[in-house]
Computed example of a mutant assay.
Amino acid sequence: MIGYVTLGTNDIETAAKFYDALLAEIGARRFMEFDQFIAWGVSIEQPGLAITKPFDGNTATVGNGVMIALQVDSPEKVNLVYNKAIELGAKDEGPAGPRGVLPGFYAGYFRDLDGNKLNVFCMMAPNI
């Protein structure tokens, strides 16, 4: 149902470098690019992530309560992407590990360089 998600940025070049390096960890690459808008995805048939300078000309701000979740296929990939985000200057919002919200839910939370909240997660088979 979701086609893509857009995050605001005040520094398109710096944000683009962050997301180029981060999303490469999950096989995503740029598939659309304009002066004020860049989008990444693993395929055109799957949801993508984009950054943009606000078209209204105002300063980009973080949406309180908004979070983007990036799904991967293993806890190792969660660790890889989460650690890459922190290495790239993201702020920790909860280290990678199992979460009690759902059996088998494994996630790491961080804020990008503009303060947007993201997580990377996978669903593992619960231990029964």
Rank of each mutant, 00 (worst) to 15 (best):
L23V: 01
I38L: 04
A125W: 04
V120T: 03
F34H: 11
N83A: 08
Q71R: 11
N64A: 13
A24D: 08
E93D: 10
I68W: 05
V78T: 01
A90S: 01
I2T: 15
M1L: 12
F55E: 14
N10H: 09
D92H: 06
L49M: 10
F121C: 04
P75R: 11
V62L: 14
A21L: 10
A39R: 13
G94W: 04
G97T: 13
P98I: 13
P54I: 10
K53A: 12
F31K: 03
M32N: 06
E93A: 12
N116W: 03
Y82H: 07
A21Q: 13
F110L: 02
V5Q: 10
A16S: 14
A16L: 05
D11E: 14
D92K: 08
T52F: 08
N64P: 14
L102C: 12
G41W: 01
V81H: 00
F31S: 03
M1W: 13
K77R: 14
I68N: 10
V62H: 08
E76W: 05
T14F: 05
E33S: 08
K17Y: 09
A107I: 05
V78I: 04
V81E: 01
L22P: 00
D112P: 02
A15F: 07
L88K: 01
P103K: 10
I128S: 15
L22V: 02
E25Q: 04
P126E: 06
I128F: 09
L118Q: 03
A28P: 02
G63I: 15
W40P: 04
W40S: 10
G3S: 14
N58H: 09
L88Q: 01
D35P: 12
L113F: 03
T14C: 07
L7E: 08
K53E: 13
G89R: 02
Q36D: 14
A15L: 11
L70M: 06
N116I: 02
A24F: 09
A50Q: 07
D73L: 05
G48K: 02
Y109N: 03
F105P: 00
L102Q: 09
T6E: 12
T61D: 14
F18Y: 06
K53M: 15
D20W: 00
I68G: 07
K53N: 10
L113C: 02
K84E: 06
I26V: 09
G97H: 11
P47V: 04
P103G: 09
F34R: 11
G65H: 13
P126R: 03
I51W: 05
V101T: 14
E13N: 11
E87R: 04
Q36Y: 13
L7V: 13
N119I: 07
P95F: 15
L80E: 07
A125Q: 11
V66L: 15
K17S: 11
G65E: 08
L22N: 00
A96M: 06
V5W: 08
Y4M: 09
A107L: 07
Y106P: 01
Q46W: 11
P95S: 15
G100H: 15
D92M: 06
G48F: 02
G65K: 09
L113Y: 03
L113K: 03
G27D: 02
E76R: 06
G65I: 13
Y109H: 07
L80I: 06
D112N: 05
L70H: 00
S74M: 02
F18N: 01
F18D: 01
D56M: 08
A39P: 08
E13L: 12
L22F: 01
K91H: 10
G100L: 12
K117D: 06
A16R: 10
I12W: 05
